[in-house]
């Protein structure tokens, strides 16, 4: 990859880059290391009065309990299923509608764009009761379909706008050339434009995945059965007013973030490789 073979840069600038990045890495990791320490502490202690990354009496008991005493793997499976479904549906719908919003001037376009944003403007906690009423009335309790539907609906406004933004940066001349060569509108879109919007697809995918992966409020209304829990619900079940199982909670939190990091690792090369746009743009 071109960007990994460093071009010459003033030494001070390179040093500056590393200093800045290292400082932010430290800030990023600091609280997370604290979470790690909680997960290793015996008992259920959220706080201590000592600074110690690895508690003297560190134990992996919480991790062991997650896999042996709690249906953690089951929750993981549920979450993976739901989040994948949301990601695929969300990316598919957002990539096609974002394209229409970017390329065509049709009646109602602006109204539609603004109105999909409006759905994000209500404080979610205020919609708890009507949401539950609707889920109960429609018979969506304990179904993943209902959950996926709600998640896609909440993730889409951002995804649609994000995709539109990315398509806006891609020159129209590319599809026009393809159309002149005899491509159908659909093929011009999927074969020419879509591959160039890869960074947008990656961001949309990560966002959709994450919005399903970490969502609690809606899931708590839809899923009323421990076997069907997604990870956030499972984590929440370690909570209790003034007697939360902090060890389990912290251990599970760290494990829950691993798939996100892996997904980011897999997808982020499309965010940085520069293999898509640079060379083809005017």
């Amino acid at each position: 990859m071109t960007s990994d073979t460093p071009q010459r840069e003033p030494f001070l600038l390179t040093l500056g880059r590393h200093a800045l990045l290292l400082a932010f890495v430290a800030i990023s990791l600091w609280p997370v290391l604290d979470v790690l320490a909680i997960s290793l502490r015996p008992g259920n202690r959220l706080r201590t009065t000592e600074f110690e990354l690895f508690p003297r009496d560190a134990t992996l008991a919480s991790y062991r309990a997650l896999f042996t005493e709690q249906p953690f793997l089951r929750w993981l499976g549920n979450s993976l299923l739901v989040s994948t479904a949301v990601t695929v549906t969300g990316v598919a719908l957002a990539s096609i509608s974002g394209y229409a919003f970017s390329r065509f001037k049709f009646v109602g376009r602006q109204t539609m764009m603004v109105s999909i944003l409006t759905t994000q403007m209500f404080p979610a906690t205020m919609l708890l009761l009507p949401l539950y009423l609707m889920i109960a009335k429609l018979g969506l309790v304990n179904t993943f379909v209902g959950l996926v539907l709600f998640y896609v609906a909440t993730a889409l406004p951002f995804c649609v706008w994000q995709m539109k933004g990315f398509y806006d940066t891609i020159p129209h001349s590319l599809e026009e050339a393809a159309r002149i060569d005899g491509c159908s509108p659909w093929n011009a879109f999927t074969k020419v434009v879509l591959p160039l919007a890869a960074p947008g697809l990656v961001i949309t995918a990560l966002f959709s995945f994450m919005s399903a992966w970490s969502e609690y409020l809606i899931a708590a209304q839809v899923l009323q059965d421990r076997e069907l829990f997604t990870l956030p619900l499972g984590l929440k079940s370690f909570q209790s007013s003034m007697s939360t199982q902090w060890g389990l909670y912290a251990a599970a939190s760290l494990l829950v973030s691993i798939p996100v990091v892996i997904l980011f690792m897999l997808l982020s090369r499309y965010l940085v490789s520069g293999l898509t746009l640079g060379s083809v743009k005017e």
Binding site: E9, T14, R17, L21, S253, S257, V261
Partner: peptide, 23 residues
């Protein structure tokens, strides 16, 4: 042009990946 940028990237994304409740 920074060496180790893929590692930096992953470490910097971590605050987003860990559930916000505990952090």
């Amino acid at each position: 042009p920074v060496r180790g940028k893929s590692l930096y990237r992953i470490l910097l994304i971590i605050p987003w990946a860990v559930p916000a409740y505990i952090t």
